[in-house]
């Protein structure tokens, strides 16, 4: 994260770590990448060094369809830093591949977001390297 003083007012920018470097490279190319276990077939999100189901360290990166639906959501009327502009929607998205991820639903009025709503991924550029996956109505 951006920890430098004076950055408080901005939206936090994720910093790559060993497990996530490939994920962020994918986002930069407009692909939502998931890990898949080569031994048990489990889809894995968030990215890890081993399969949380079978401990296999043989994992592949596969591209998600980027489609899913809203499992639950909350319209935030305050943000953790002034960089966030309320109201905005924080949601848990169930991807077609069966994994769940947090994101924002954008591109519509927050009041239009519903549980079960079909959504698809889009990418929001935060800096030259980081493109944050978000979701819009499908």
């Amino acid at each position: 994260m951006s920890e430098k003083s004076g950055e408080k007012s901005k939206v936090p920018v994720p910093q790559k770590r060993p497990e996530t470097e490939k994920f962020w490279e994918g986002c930069k190319e407009g692909k939502l990448l998931l890990q898949k276990c080569n031994d048990c077939g489990e889809y894995i999100f968030y990215p890890r060094a081993l399969c949380p189901r079978c401990m296999s360290q043989s994992l592949s990166w596969v591209e998600s369809s980027g489609r899913g639906e809203v499992y639950t959501f909350s319209i935030h009327h305050r943000g953790p830093t002034p960089g966030f502009k309320p109201p905005y929607v924080v949601a848990l998205i169930d991807l077609e591949e069966g994994v769940r991820m947090m994101s924002n639903v954008v591109g519509c009025d927050p009041n239009e977001v519903k549980i079960g709503m079909k959504v698809k991924v889009t990418f929001e550029q935060l800096n030259e390297d980081i493109y944050l996956p978000k979701f819009v109505p499908a």
């Binding site: 994260m1 939206v11 994720p14 770590r17 996530t20 968030y46 953790p80 924080v90 994101s103 924002n104």
Partner: peptide
């Protein structure tokens, strides 16, 4: 309270 890379950037309170 949130995953630093894949939750916090979405502004979860």
């Amino acid at each position: 309270m949130s995953h630093i890379e894949l939750e916090y950037p979405y502004g979860l309170l």
